[in-house]
Each structure stands twice: as structure tokens, then as C-alpha cells.
């Protein structure tokens, strides 16, 4: 047999073999149920069909983990992200990288739902998960209302609607109480929030962090910025002279750190009067239900008199807060 004849016969045979192997390797597509268990619109305005109640959920954003906790769905989580620093009770769960996304690790966990955040995760990952036939829901958390709606929706997905609704009602009530406390006249010092004492990254108009500051009875000086994350110039801060500086400064001495990186700020009222407060980054920098805790901590640090416990005058009266 000539070489060219052999080639003519071998090539089609090889093609058929490769095609057969490829078809064999491809996973059997999951058969969709007749009627979806639930159809929802997520934070990216995508319509998502869930065929069955989720049993194996992977969270790829710390904010999504917080919302799962608030909605009472923790028992269905099979993995969280390596950035979920404060979830000590979930220490037994595998941690996956969300930035960049460790897709192989997620697929290996065989999840029936992936929870993402519309503020953190890449929207294009939706196509990726669709192709893998793994439902992904982007939980909305651009505003407090969106966070509450996400808790309700997560409760509906996880079959914990009652617990989620109760949590939403409780959070809404606590927020209203906090705002009522700080609405007293004359309690609105000007303030700036700094993500770090090193570079002056802050938040601009429309940011949920400015809302939290307002709930805490503060007047954020950066509300004039249109950009969501301005890097403040030292002289601009000096000129606006905030009464209070808040940030996620960690355990270090915030005043020393600020003056080390911004020596000219020593004349700021906030520095001179030691009005510098640190809030845990996980509570304030991750949009979610824990933000209320951050606002409450801010308010208690800045306006302690509003939260003073009034000593009972008689033995029959119980302790009350103002």
C-alpha cells in the first residue's frame, strides 16, 4: 500500500477515534426538571432557574457568605473563599480562591449553586458557570435595601424564608433605632472614612459606606466626590478639617500610622482631639448585613452619650438605654 493511500485511510479513522473520545469524555448533561423549583432575578438582573432546592452551595464572595449566614443557610455551604477571614465557625469548610477564581476547585466540589456578589465578582463568570451547567446567583449588595432583598431571596432559595424574614425585620428595626438615636440635633460631626492609614482611599457619593456614616450620626466630607473610590489629596483633607477620622486601621495605633504617612495632618481637629476610630474591615468593607454592626460601632464610639446606660434610681427599675 502506498504511503498516500495509507494516509487517506488512517486520517478518517483517527478523526473518528478522536471524535468518539471527545464525545465520551464530555459529561452527560444534567437533565432539567420539567418545572424549575424556583425562578429568580439576581443582582445583575439575570433570570436564574433553580431546578432543585440547593444542597451544596459555594460562596465566592465574603459578602455572599454574610448573607447566607443572615438568611440561615450556613448548613448548605460546602466551601467559602480564602478571604472569609472572620468566619471562625466555618473553619472546617474548604477555602477557595475567588480572585483569581479557582474554577477547578469549585467544579470539583460539585456544587448545585454558586453564590456571588454583584459588587465584587466578575459578571462575565456567569457565562462560565452557565456553560458548566452550574447555577450562579449574584446577590445584590449595592445598597442596604439590596442587602435586605438578597437575604430574603437567599432564604427563599435555601428553604429558610421564615428565618430570613425575621432577620430582615430585625435588621431594619435596628437600623431605624440607630438612625432615631443619632437624629438628635447637634450631633453631626464632619468625618472622613479612610480605608487605610497609608494611602487615603475613601468613598464617594452613592457609596453604602457614606450611608453607614450618616446612620451613625456623621456628616461625611467626601459626599461631594462623584467617583466611588477617590484617593484623597492631603491638602484637600487639611482644608476640610474633619472632626472625626474613621477607618479600618487594624490593631496598630491609628494616630501614629496616620501621622507617619500624612505628617501635615497634625493640625486636623480629628488628630488634635484624638477622634480617630477603627472599625473591623470585615464589618465595613464587605457590603452586607454586618454593615449595620459597623454603623452601630461607629455611633457608639463617636456619640457614647447617646448610648449611655442610665443607672436605676430605685431598686425596682431595670437598666435602660437612652
Amino acid at each position: 500500500m502506498s504511503q498516500s493511500a495509507m494516509r487517506r485511510r488512517t486520517l478518517p479513522a483517527l478523526s473518528i477515534l478522536v471524535c468518539s473520545l471527545l464525545c465520551g469524555c464530555a459529561s452527560e448533561p444534567r437533565k432539567p426538571a420539567e418545572t424549575p423549583f424556583m425562578t429568580l432575578t439576581d443582582g445583575l438582573e439575570r433570570t436564574v432557574n433553580l431546578q432543585n432546592p440547593p444542597q451544596r452551595v459555594v460562596s465566592i464572595a465574603p459578602g455572599a457568605t454574610h448573607i447566607m449566614r443572615a438568611a440561615g443557610g450556613l448548613s448548605s455551604l460546602v466551601a467559602i473563599t480564602s478571604a472569609d477571614y472572620r468566619e471562625q465557625d466555618l473553619a472546617g469548610l474548604p477555602r477557595i480562591s475567588a480572585l483569581p477564581l479557582d474554577l477547578e476547585a469549585i467544579v470539583a466540589l460539585d456544587p448545585d449553586l454558586v453564590l456571588a456578589s454583584d459588587q465584587v465578582n466578575d459578571p462575565s463568570h456567569a457565562d462560565l458557570f452557565d456553560a458548566l451547567d452550574i447555577p450562579i446567583v449574584y446577590l445584590g449588595s449595592a445598597s442596604w435595601e439590596a442587602v435586605l432583598a438578597s437575604i430574603r431571596m437567599t432564604g427563599d432559595m435555601m428553604g429558610t424564608s421564615e428565618q430570613a424574614t425575621s432577620m430582615v425585620d430585625s435588621l431594619a428595626k435596628k437600623r431605624d433605632e440607630l438612625m432615631a438615636k443619632t437624629a438628635a440635633p447637634g450631633v453631626r460631626p464632619t468625618a472622613v472614612f479612610l480605608i487605610s492609614p497609608i494611602q487615603s482611599y475613601s468613598f464617594g457619593a452613592g457609596s453604602y459606606v457614606l450611608d453607614l456614616m450618616r446612620w451613625a450620626g456623621l456628616d461625611p466630607i467626601t459626599s461631594s466626590f462623584d467617583t466611588p473610590a477617590p484617593v484623597l489629596d492631603d491638602e484637600w483633607v487639611l482644608m476640610h478639617n474633619p472632626d472625626v477620622i474613621i477607618g479600618s486601621f487594624g490593631e496598630d495605633d491609628a494616630k501614629d500610622a496616620l501621622l507617619n504617612h500624612h505628617p501635615t495632618w497634625q493640625s486636623l481637629d480629628a488628630i488634635r482631639n484624638d477622634r480617630i476610630f477603627s472599625i473591623p474591615a470585615a464589618d465595613i468593607l464587605t457590603p452586607g448585613p454586618r454593615n449595620l454592626q459597623a454603623a452601630s460601632q461607629m455611633a457608639r464610639s463617636i456619640h457614647p452619650h447617646l448610648f449611655e446606660v442610665v443607672a436605676p434610681r430605685t431598686g425596682n427599675e431595670s437598666l435602660t438605654t437612652k
Binding site: S196, P197, I198, Q199, D233, S248, H261, P263
Partner: peptide
């Protein structure tokens, strides 16, 4: 790095700036 603040500071420094000059 697990410290996002320090990562931001390094990235900003790498782009060059006269902010903070004394």
C-alpha cells in the same frame, strides 16, 4: 498578600506620586 491596604499602597507607589513628600 492578604492585606489589601498594603497591596493598594504598593500599587499606588509603583505608579509614582509626590503625595506625602515632606
Amino acid at each position: 498578600s492578604e492585606d489589601a491596604n498594603k497591596t493598594r499602597a504598593v500599587l499606588f507607589w509603583l505608579m509614582g506620586s509626590f503625595s506625602g513628600i515632606t
